[in-house]
Design a protein around this nucleic acid. Structure first.
Length: 278
DNA sequence: CTTGGTTCCTGCGTGC
DNA sequence: TGCACGCAGGAACCAA
């Protein structure tokens, strides 16, 4: 379940590791994964190109290439970026790039919800079309209470569901939406339109701070091990989660005696403190 | 346009 | 011990 902080952690590694290097080999796994324009086309469009840098937009990783194209990776929920060197292809490995210095970078994804796309000529292929609808980055200056408020006002949907909408809060997924709502003291099942201006402000603030904290601690690795760093190690933010995955445990807000509850909201498993979240 | 439900997929925890 | 089962979820897609 890589969300913004997890993808950003991977991005920082990749940007340092592969920038300035030329792609010399492209290998694919046996299983089919969403890929545009298919393995043969992807190989043809990548071979010989040098990586200029690696960016992130929401949960998308964007490799800028010297041939004017962009390689876009979305990790879905179980996608990983790993390095296997010259080992035989891993069971769930879908694409391995080999660089001019012999380094390799692999895309691994057991559940195959992830996508690999090459953007050529600026037109977004179907599988990554969502990228052009992404809202502003909640961790950056351009993200304001006015923006969030405009997307929540008049809406009957639960506030949590809208936080999962990438047009409203890009990069946010199930973990960080629960954590942001807890920090803001807002119940996930509130109707979005019922939030008062002060609550929208608190939520805006909470979104930014929880995502930045997630990045600071290199992301959240849950026991099922979906997300790991490129070297296979775990992040550390799981130890600092205040509600997510803590059903039945005590709320971590200072002085609060509440017990974390879990409930389905908008079809998603949702965690909150019934005492300090109104 | 909004909203909520369904689908894809595999690994893991649970219960018998 | 082994197996069936259900759950987890990002986002495209569909139905009302």
């Amino acid at each position: 379940m890589p969300e913004l902080p997890e993808v950003e952690t991977i991005r920082r590694f990749l940007d340092r590791q592969v920038s300035g290097k030329r792609i010399e080999k492209v290998r694919f796994g046996a299983k089919r994964v969403t890929m545009h324009p298919g393995p043969t086309g992807v190989r043809r469009k990548l071979l010989g190109a040098t990586v200029l840098g690696v960016d992130r937009r929401g949960k998308y990783l964007v490799f800028h290439l010297s041939n004017g194209r962009e390689l876009v990776l979305h990790l879905g929920m179980s996608g990983q970026v790993r390095r296997f060197g010259r080992d035989p292809m891993h069971r769930h490995e879908h694409m391995r790039l080999e660089f001019s210095d012999g380094q390799t970078v692999s895309f691994v994804d057991a559940r195959r919800f992830g996508r690999v796309c090459v953007i050529d000529g600026g037109v977004l292929p179907r599988p990554v079309r969502g990228m052009e609808r992404l809202g502003p980055e909640p961790t950056e200056k351009g993200y304001s209470a006015a923006y969030l408020g405009a997307h929540l006002s008049g809406r009957k949907a639960r506030v949590k569901s809208l936080l999962l909408d990438q047009r409203v809060a890009c990069g946010v997924g199930n973990i960080y939406s629960d954590e942001a709502l807890h920090r803001a003291g807002i119940r996930p099942n509130r109707q979005a339109g019922s939030l008062k201006p002060t609550e929208v402000c608190r939520l805006t603030e909470a979104l930014g701070s929880v995502l930045k904290d997630g990045i600071r601690w290199c992301g959240t690795t849950m026991r099922d091990g979906g997300y790991v760093l490129v070297d296979g190690s775990a992040g550390s933010f799981q130890d600092r989660l205040r509600v997510y995955g803590r059903e039945g445990e005590k709320c971590r807000r200072r002085g609060c005696q509440g017990v974390v509850r879990r409930q389905r909201v908008g079809g998603r498993s949702t965690h909150f403190c019934p005492v300090c979240q109104k």
